[in-house]
Design a protein around this nucleic acid. Structure first.
Length: 356
DNA sequence: TAACCGTGGTA
DNA sequence: TTACCAAGGTT
C-alpha cells in the first residue's frame, strides 16, 4: 500500500492537468465542478463550469437565480436534476447557513444532490478533511491493482472499496490524494486498452500480472432501455410558435419543448391528427400540415426516444390551452430545451424556414 | 434494491 | 452498429 500511494502521488505531481477548479479551494467552486462532472467528462463539462462561475461568482448569486435561468445554462449537459438540486442547495445555504458553504462532512453530505462521493470530494479538497472520494475512476484503479472482483455496483462491493480507500488515504494529503487517484484513473488506468507498459504501478498490479485488465472492474447491473414515441407538434402563426414546459415526473423535468403527443409505436400521421390530445391543444379546424419529418432516434441512458416533428401552418392564432406558451420565434433560444428540440430549432433557423 | 435520470465519445 | 461508460444521486 505504501508503494501504491508513493507511485500514485508521484505520478500525479508529474502529470496532473491544470484545471480551473484546481486554482482555488473555494468550496463553492469545488462543489460546482463536482456536480457538473458527475457522470460527465471534463471535456464536456469545462465550458459549463466556466459559464456558471462567470454568471454566478458566488453561491449567493446562484441562490438568487431562477430555475429557468439555471436550466438554460445547464442545457445540453443532461441529468437536469443536478441543476435543479444545485439551485435548491444554493438557496438552502443562503437560508440555513448564512450564505456560507458548510465546512463539516455531515453538513455537506446532507445537502441535496450531494452523495458520498461528492461530499468526500468537497470535504477533502476544500477543507483538507480525511474522507476518501470513491468515484468510477477509483473503483477501476483499486479493483485492478488490488485484484478485487466484487461488483462495484453492489452494496458489499461499495463497502469493500470504501474500506480500502479509507485505509489508503490515512496519513496522506486528503485533497491531493483523492484527486491523484481520480486523475490516474482518468488518464492512465483508463477503461479500455490502458497502456500498462508505461504504467508506474505495473510491477505490482494484480490485473496486469494476471492478464485481467479487461475484466476488471466487475459490474453486475445492465440498465434496460425502453422505447418511446414522441410526435412533436410545431404550430406556426405569424412569427410565433408554441411551447410547453415539462412538469411531470419524467425525463427533462423543467425543460421546454413543442407540444408532444406520445404514442405506443411509430404511428401514421392520421392517428396523431385524429388524436384527442390534439383536440385539447387546439380547436382550430383549418390547420394544414406543412411538413412531416422522418422518425429519428434520440438515445438516453435508459430510453430510446423515437421522435418526429409535424409542422402546422395555422390559419388563425391558436387558442391557448393549459400550459401552452406562445413564443415569439426570436425569443425561442431563451428557453431551456432538450437536445433534440435544440437540434430542430437550429435546423429550422439554418433552413430559414423558421427564424427570419 | 433496482430503476430512474442525458449526452457525447469511443472502439 | 452496438455497447460501454464518464469526477453519481435519488427514490
Amino acid at each position: 500500500m505504501e508503494f501504491f500511494n508513493l507511485q500514485i502521488h508521484g505520478w500525479y505531481s508529474k502529470y496532473k492537468r491544470d484545471l480551473p477548479w484546481r486554482n482555488s479551494h473555494n468550496p463553492y467552486f469545488v462543489w460546482l465542478s463536482e456536480i457538473i462532472l458527475q457522470q460527465t467528462r471534463i471535456d464536456q463539462g469545462m465550458a459549463y463550469y466556466l459559464r456558471f462561475t462567470e454568471e454566478f461568482p458566488t453561491v449567493l448569486d446562484l441562490a438568487n437565480a431562477s430555475e429557468d435561468q439555471v436550466l438554460k445554462l445547464w442545457q445540453g449537459l443532461g441529468y437536469y436534476s443536478r441543476a435543479r438540486n444545485l439551485l435548491f442547495t444554493a438557496k438552502f445555504i443562503q437560508e440555513h447557513h448564512q450564505g456560507k458553504f458548510p465546512e463539516d462532512y455531515n453538513s455537506i453530505r446532507s445537502l441535496k444532490g450531494i452523495g458520498d462521493y461528492t461530499a468526500a470530494a468537497i470535504a477533502s479538497i476544500s477543507f483538507n478533511l480525511e474522507y476518501p472520494a470513491v468515484d468510477g475512476n477509483v473503483y477501476r484503479v483499486l479493483s485492478r491493482f488490488f485484484g478485487i472482483s466484487e461488483p462495484i455496483d453492489s452494496n458489499t462491493g461499495k463497502k469493500t472499496f470504501g474500506l480500502l480507500a479509507k485505509e489508503l488515504i490515512k496519513g496522506a494529503d486528503p485533497g491531493m490524494h483523492n484527486q491523484a487517484l481520480m486523475e490516474f484513473g482518468a488518464l492512465q488506468c483508463v477503461p479500455k486498452s490502458p497502456n500498462c507498459a508505461l504504467c508506474p504501478l505495473n510491477e505490482s498490479c494484480f490485473a496486469f500480472a494476471n492478464n485481467k485488465v479487461g475484466e476488471l472492474p466487475v459490474k453486475q447491473n445492465k440498465t434496460k432501455q425502453r422505447d418511446r414515441y414522441f410526435n412533436y407538434l410545431v404550430f406556426e402563426f405569424a412569427n410565433n410558435t408554441w411551447l410547453r414546459q415539462r412538469i411531470k415526473n419524467d425525463i427533462w423535468l423543467g425543460l421546454f419543448e413543442f407540444p408532444v403527443i406520445e404514442t405506443s409505436e411509430e404511428t401514421e400521421v392520421g392517428f396523431v391528427l385524429n388524436h384527442p390530445e390534439l383536440g385539447e391543444l387546439t380547436s382550430l379546424r383549418n390547420t394544414s400540415v406543412k411538413r412531416i419529418s422522418n422518425w429519428k432516434i434520440h438515445i438516453l441512458s435508459h430510453q430510446r426516444i423515437h421522435y418526429r416533428f409535424i409542422w402546422f401552418d395555422l390559419s388563425e392564432e391558436i387558442k391557448l390551452t393549459d400550459g401552452l406558451i406562445k413564443v415569439n420565434k426570436e425569443d425561442i433560444l431563451n428557453f431551456a430545451v432538450p437536445r433534440l428540440i435544440e437540434e430542430c430549432i437550429i435546423e429550422l433557423s439554418e433552413n430559414d424556414r423558421f427564424m427570419r
